[in-house]
């Protein structure tokens, strides 16, 4: 329902909304700006907002000094790896629950969700010890396994809510039209499910990329993703604002971009379909 709104009111709302939006975004903006300053300018008083000598030296230094690329690749491998593995396990499960629901399907779904509610500290010690004893501590494989498991319920749920929206009649129509199981999957199901699978993929890469309990506790150096690498800036390097900002900007930039693409799916995925 498009209502006519007076221009004065619209102008007022525009000003307020932009002010609030910029205020909320400001810490990120400030980080990005600071990453282009020299260390001296970064702590200058009064702070310099836009008028400083823009430089890329922090990015060069972060990269050369701290093996940044290794940690970046760890983040990529761990988040993408755990998401793909999770999808491989979850797609058949979600598919069968959506299209061949049984009496206990609902219970299974709810139970899966309940595993997500298990606070990580409840299993921190056993996982730590199991990983230590099996040599998985500080390995990418170890983190891929853990992140797959903690995100599996979300992946199953997201896919389930998407698959459920594919009308069963369409699959039946395909069956009547002579499609076998394989053709049904290739020609009908997959094309219709791809958007849902893509959003699930996106959201889970984001969640895995930002996961900061297991990545901090199960890695030391070798397999540390960006979450753990940035945590190492806690002190004293954290006082080098420009370098901290450069490292942070690099760490959050890819996810900010992905996140903006997936904002619609975010609501659905994180509320397990309860809000659409």
């Amino acid at each position: 329902m498009a209502r006519r709104v007076s221009n004065r009111r619209k102008t007022l709302v525009t000003i307020v909304a932009w002010a609030v939006g910029i205020a909320i975004f400001f810490p990120i903006l400030w980080t990005i700006l600071t990453s282009f300053k020299t260390e001296a300018e970064a702590i200058a008083s009064p702070p310099k907002f836009l008028f400083f000598d823009w430089t890329l030296e922090n990015y060069a230094e972060v990269n050369s000094r701290s093996n940044y690329f290794l940690h970046f690749m760890n983040s990529v491998i761990i988040s993408v790896g755990s998401t793909l593995l999770g999808l491989a396990i979850a797609i058949p499960a979600a598919w069968s629950m959506a299209f061949v629901p049984g009496k206990r399907t609902k219970d299974v779904l709810m139970w899966m969700l309940s595993t997500k509610m298990l606070p990580p500290v409840g299993v921190l010690i056993p996982i730590y010890l199991l990983f230590r004893d099996s040599g998985l501590l500080d390995t990418r494989l170890g983190l891929v396994i853990v992140l797959t498991l903690i995100n599996l319920p979300i992946i199953v749920w997201m896919l389930f809510t998407y698959f459920k929206e594919i009308p069963g009649e369409i699959l039946e129509a395909a069956r009547m039209d002579g499609a076998g199981l394989w053709e049904e999957v290739v020609h009908v199901l997959t094309p219709m499910a791809v958007p849902g699978i893509a959003s699930t993929l996106l959201l889970n890469i984001i969640l895995a990329w930002n996961e900061a309990f297991w990545t901090l506790n199960l890695t030391a150096a070798k397999a540390a993703p960006l979450t753990a690498f940035i945590a190492s800036y806690s002190s004293p390097e954290g006082l080098f604002y420009a370098k901290l900002s450069a490292a942070s900007t690099l760490a959050i930039a890819p996810i900010l971009v992905l996140g903006w693409f997936s904002q619609k799916q975010l609501v659905r995925g994180l509320t397990f379909g309860a809000v659409k």
Binding site: E169, I170, E172, A173, M176, A179, G180, H187, V188, P191
Partner: peptide
Amino acid sequence: PARRGLAMVFQSYALYPHMSVRKNIAF
């Protein structure tokens, strides 16, 4: 169902949304 030689028209029509009309009919 595929080999009974019957064709069905569904209440929701159950058209394949990702295919053109031509491809739907030819499916």
